[in-house]
Nucleic acid binder design. Structure first.
Length: 558
RNA sequence: GCUCCUAUAGUGUAGUCCGGUUAAGCAUUUUGGCUUCUCAAGCCAAAGACUCGGGUUCAAAUCCCGAUGGGAGCACCA
């Protein structure tokens, strides 16, 4: 073993390492550390005194099997295993609030939860968490469903938290009657002050009868803000969430599906606790900012004698320079700095889709982040790398010329050329009609000199005879082409002009990047018009782009 | 301010629970090479990390204590 280790490390080994290896493989020696240490020292000294060649010879003679290269450790696929799970009995859920457009953060929660259900052949529930009538809207509800569908996430059940209003009321009354909840009519500021100072208020002393009466009054008499139902937690608790949190409050706004049927609405903590329990959720994964609610949720369920799910947490996901929160995005839209929630600079699902990011790439990317609780501020190119792998294989290669310069090529013998759509995959060819007039990119023009050759890809070598405002060249024999620059071109007579949008980082630090959207007028081949809308192409020597419309493409990534 | 979470290469992570079999694995990035009628993809190679300080132990990325950096919560939002 010492020999092997020495050989693998340039002819030298160390006692400690060998000792560790032995103890690691053969635990029975662990009690005899002192004794074997001596032997090891000797062996190690022996081995180290040999030259590397001698070591190799020795190994070949005595232990040829260790020269066989070790197999690579297999990388775990997917999420970490869960403890104490029963195959087929796992239930997870994704509970978005329909109060905004879904973004990459929603994708993370949805994907992690649905992957676990899939992994254990369980069930996955989509639950619209709609207990704040003032915030929810059908538009968002629909957008979330569209987004999830695009991501390819399937659920076994769709429901809304508000389906179970009666259950919340029943459970609420149960808590009131058991003295575990009370109605508080203090002012909002006082409540918050008492929480900070860890003091109970007089309402918490009220008896059950009074609480019941006040509960009735909450149905009609009390105005919003006059009274709330509070859980009897622990006003002295270090975890501020436990300091008699709100269970119900009065909201008079019109709910997007239930209208004005209810005016007492459960709070998030109460609703989630009850819902997860009655929906049979076994594992609930949420982002880290909810971590402190775990204790509360468990306590509420204990107070009601209800089953508790396992709760797990993961870090929030954001991209560098791409804000996720409505608080930041909304003003940008209002000021016209971004066009809408589908602006390709945004991390919303709709924007990602428009930009040409594939759902599979998002899934892989999110899986690669794992269940870490460390903050993840990923650079966008991590996602791009995954996306490239999905997109490369079936993106047609098209020519596109930016900062177009004219070039005339003499002696051309053909009037059309056939170019293949993909260098390795069989994706057919396209035919391009040509005459002697072409466009090539300004960048390329800068790099060529009179008397030099260039190769127009798929066409011919061209000798540059004159370089001025316009360029003149002549067709020369195809031969050696390895050394000459190969560039893409567009035929002038059928060039199709499009707008190419290049999204860049929206923010540099806290500062809005005024140049975050570059728009270029470029020429591409007529074949562009035949592409389906939304199709991903690669503009040769430029990068992957998605056809947004007949006249506009969006740059995906290099 | 109080409470909680977190810390591994440029970046993102695995390993940490149960200390040794891994002088830290993978992906990405970067750099070189091969291949190629694209600056793409593919293939090969190289570079690069356990936040710091103590302690326990024959042995610490792993356990304990402390410091520091980052984040979150302290709503009648979710």
């Amino acid at each position: 073993m010492a020999l092997q280790n020495a050989f693998e490390h340039e002819g030298e080994t160390r006692d400690k390492i060998i000792l560790g290896k032995i103890l690691g493989t053969k635990p029975e020696f662990r009690t005899k550390v002192k004794e074997i240490s001596k032997d090891i020292s000797e062996i190690v000294a022996n081995v180290n005194s040999l030259s590397i060649d001698e070591q190799e010879k020795e190994i070949k003679e005595k232990f040829p099997e260790i020269l066989i290269p070790k197999e690579k450790i297999e990388q775990r696929e997917g999420l970490p295993e869960l403890k104490d799970v029963i195959q087929g009995k796992v239930v997870t859920r994704f509970p978005p609030e329909p109060n905004g457009y879904p973004h990459i953060g929603h994708a993370k929660a949805a994907i992690i939860n649905s992957e676990y259900a899939k992994m254990y052949d369980g069930k996955f529930i989509l639950r619209m968490d709609d207990t704040n009538p003032e915030a929810e809207r059908m538009e968002y509800h629909a957008a979330i469903k569209v987004g999830l569908e695009w991501l390819g996430i399937k659920f076994d059940k769709i429901k809304s938290t508000s389906d179970d209003m009666q259950i919340f009321y029943d459970k609420g009354i149960e808590l009131i009657n058991s003295g575990k909840a009370y109605i508080c009519t203090c002012k909002r500021e006082d409540i918050s002050k008492n929480r900070r100072e860890r003091k109970a208020c007089k309402c918490s002393m009220g008896d059950i009868d009074k609480n019941n009466k006040n509960w009735t009054k909450m149905q009609e008499k009390f105005k919003p803000g006059d009274a709330i139902v509070r859980f009897r937690g622990d006003m002295k608790a270090d975890n501020a969430v436990m300091r008699d949190p709100v269970l119900f409050r009065i909201i008079e706004g019109k709910h997007y599906t239930l209208g004005e049927r209810y005016r007492i609405w459960p709070s998030y903590d109460f609703a989630v606790a009850i819902e997860d329990s009655i929906d049979g959720v076994t594992h609930a994964f949420r982002s880290k900012e909810f971590e402190l609610r775990k204790e509360l949720i468990d306590t509420i369920l204990d107070a009601l004698g209800m089953r508790k799910p396992y709760q797990g947490f993961f870090s929030r996901l954001e991209f560098k320079g791409m804000p996720i929160s409505k608080r930041i995005i909304k003003p940008l839209i209002e000021e016209g700095k971004v066009s809408w929630y589908d602006d390709p600079r945004l991390p919303t699902l709709e924007a990602l889709r428009r930009r040409g990011i594939k759902p599979e790439a998002i899934r892989k990317f999110i899986m690669s982040l794992g269940l870490t609780k460390a903050n993840t501020l990923a650079p966008f190119d991590a996602l791009e790398a995954f996306n490239r792998k999905f997109v490369d294989g079936d993106s047609k290669r098209l020519f596109m010329v930016k900062d177009a310069k004219k070039i005339t090529v003499k002696n051309l013998t053909m009037s059309f050329v056939e170019v293949s759509n993909h260098p390795v995959n069989e994706m057919g060819k396209r035919r391009i009609e040509i005459d002697e007039n072409f466009y090539i990119s300004g960048d390329d023009v800068q790099n060529i000199q009179e008397g030099e050759q260039i190769r127009l890809l798929g066409l011919s070598n061209v000798l540059i005879t004159k370089k001025g405002e316009e360029i003149i060249g002549e067709c020369v024999n195809d031969e050696e082409s390895a050394q000459i620059p190969k560039i893409q071109w567009v035929s002038q007579k059928n060039a199709h002009q499009i707008k190419l949008i290049i999204p860049k980082t929206l923010f540099n630090g806290d500062e809005f990047n005024e140049n975050s959207l570059e728009e270029l007028d470029v020429y591409t081949e007529p074949h562009y018009l035949e592409l389906k809308e939304g199709e991903e192409v690669q503009f040769v020597r430029f990068g992957y782009c998605r056809k947004d419309s007949q006249n506009q493409a969006i740059f995906t990534h290099k």
